[in-house]
Write a protein that binds this DNA or RNA. Structure first.
Lengths: 348, 348
DNA sequence: CTGAAAGCGCTTACAG
DNA sequence: CTGAAAGCGCTTACAG
């Protein structure tokens, strides 16, 4: 008798109330079959009638059923793309902090933030029931967050692409301040025509960097000229494409704030093809300070974004959420810092 | 009665026979306590006498006890360092193939192949009981392999640092052929003093590349000069250090085969500081063909190593091992290919 | 502090 | 094809 309450709660699991896992017995009850049959369906045995199998299968999917086991110590780290040195920096910070706390980090990529991403990706995550989830530079609708939240899966976003909900814990960097620092550095060197190539327009960090650029210009009595602004893709290709475009103008910029280090590489290539020397003919500022930045010829002046620290901070926040420990704050922004190297100089 | 055999097998589990997991009941029997007590120790309850707790704990550790649960669908991908764009390329291939087969990839770094690595790291892995393990550029002693093997944990090595056992499945690239291709390309352009900076001397891939370099020289009637060979660290720093050294010689090389792309970046920097233009004053060849290679000023001539494909291939091999499906071969080497760009030219 | 016993979620050999 | 029943590894409320 003493177990009655618990039993009832388990049966309720089907309704998907947060934190309560659906049991095989609940599925069986709903399908009107025995637990043995549900077990067979789950294990792909052949001795189940097709009609029965289909019905059970449908209910299994609808109920987001996951076999119970002691909660895993695996935490998901989900990138939208797994294709840049940028990603390793975040991963390194996350891995270091999580492994120090006995957690494994499962890395995955949900290809493309756009239409290639399956609409139900958050559902897929929820069905795996990880101990916690970290999402990197990802679009997340309020609905998707609710879906994860309802399953009781702790979630932290790193470098959020948008801000769907002020309650959603996230870690970013001071992108706006970084945009200001980059632009003011160029202004101080005497540049008048400073162009910028930012990231995708729909990313928060792209917009913040552009706004910082604009703020610095206007604070210093310069006009913000939309003709000198391009939205890129945060890849070498985008930097190359738009730098070629900007440098082909009648009065080309003398400096380009490249939005990130990878785009700066593209700007270097565009300049090289046009026979422009950096920094003599063109100054370039990046963003991120990837390990390779100091090794480029010439070493890249860039805004350091502490990616590994952001990863570690997000990991710590997630651990707190997983243990129901309080979060000092939901939204953390780590400081960026300008690192002056040899890709910037006074215009000639 | 029908369960008797199974029961006995479970009890035998304590002896660590491959594939058989130790049960809590077996631990209890060995410790001379009830299963309830072992369970309490496992769950850190306080109502266990210290002496009992210690004894149970010792047996738990000795027996490599892992609570049973349906075998996880997580596969471990273990790097010795998680600090280079090189690592993401492998990770991308592994992740793509594994996620297509419903497996999650847990990434970790065992810091340092050397003394900083805990001697028992393979024991740590064994204790987690992952569904499978992939090790990247890692030293593995025969003893360590046996430890994992005894636990019945499938293992594949990517870019093995050494070859402890011909039975150990591994995926590499044709490093020797790549070394030849790089060197012959430079010879064909007319270079006579070709230096090389390889990776750490204890890595198989470093030695294979050097041997290819030597082979190409001797095949073409050139003398192999040890004074033109350096063992690096596969990082920018090593390339920079040894290129500075080589270029400071009385008769400096006119070309450097840099061992990998990151070291090529260091060579670029050394050349830049000495005022040498690439390729006019110095030709440089890399190895790997990281995505950034084509974006360097000038774009780097390099030997393409299909890192993502190597990751995917290793993933496929591991999946086969996990399912007890046959492996066509234990040792796979994917082809490397020279990619000629703008960092090489005839000496002037 | 300990363990017998009841219980949990799930699986399986077998009777029908 | 189905499910009652026995079983598995593990946990827990409770009696001693």
């Amino acid at each position: 008798m003493k177990r009655t309450r618990q039993r009832a709660a388990a049966a309720d699991g089907v309704d998907g109330s947060p934190g309560m896992r659906t049991t095989l017995a609940a599925i069986a009850a709903q399908a009107g079959v025995s637990t043995a049959t549900v077990s067979k369906v789950l294990n792909g045995r052949s001795d189940v009638a097709t009609a029965t199998r289909d019905r059970v299968h449908r209910i299994l999917v609808e109920s987001n059923y996951v076999p119970q086991k002691r909660s895993s110590d695996v935490v998901d780290l989900i990138f939208s793309e797994l294709d840049s040195p940028w990603a390793v920096e975040i991963l390194r910070g996350v891995e270091r902090h999580m492994s120090a706390h006995g957690r494994a980090v499962a890395v995955s990529a949900v290809s493309g933030d756009g239409p290639t991403r399956p609409p139900s990706w958050t559902g897929t995550i929820a069905r795996q029931h990880p101990a916690g989830v970290m999402l990197v530079t990802s679009q997340l609708t309020a609905r998707q967050w609710r879906q994860l939240h309802a399953q009781g899966i702790p979630l932290v976003v790193i470098d959020p692409a948008n801000l769907p909900d002020p309650e959603l814990p996230s870690v970013g960097a001071t992108n706006w301040a970084g945009g200001i620092a980059a632009t003011e550095h160029l202004l101080q060197q005497g540049h008048k025509r400073i162009a910028t190539i930012s990231g995708p327009q729909e990313y928060l960090c792209s917009r913040a960097r552009i706004d910082g650029y604009r703020h610095a210009l206007e604070q210093n009595g310069h006009r913000f000229d939309p003709a000198l602004v391009r939205w890129g893709d945060f890849r070498q290709e985008g930097g190359y494409h738009w730098a070629s475009d900007l440098l082909g103008r009648r009065s080309p910029p003398t400096a380009i704030f490249a939005g990130n280090d990878q785009q700066a590489l593209g700007v270097y290539e565009a300049a090289r093809q046009l026979g422009l020397a950096i920094p003599r003919d063109l100054s370039v500022v990046g963003f991120d300070d990837l390990p390779l930045a100091r090794w480029l010829p010439p070493p890249l002046t860039t805004v350091c974004q502490p990616l590994a620290d952001m990863g570690a901070m997000a990991a710590e926040m997630l651990l707190r959420l997983m243990d129901n420990r309080p979060l000092p704050t939901r939204r953390v922004e780590l400081a960026t810092e300008l690192v002056v190297r040899e890709s910037t100089a006074a215009p000639t």
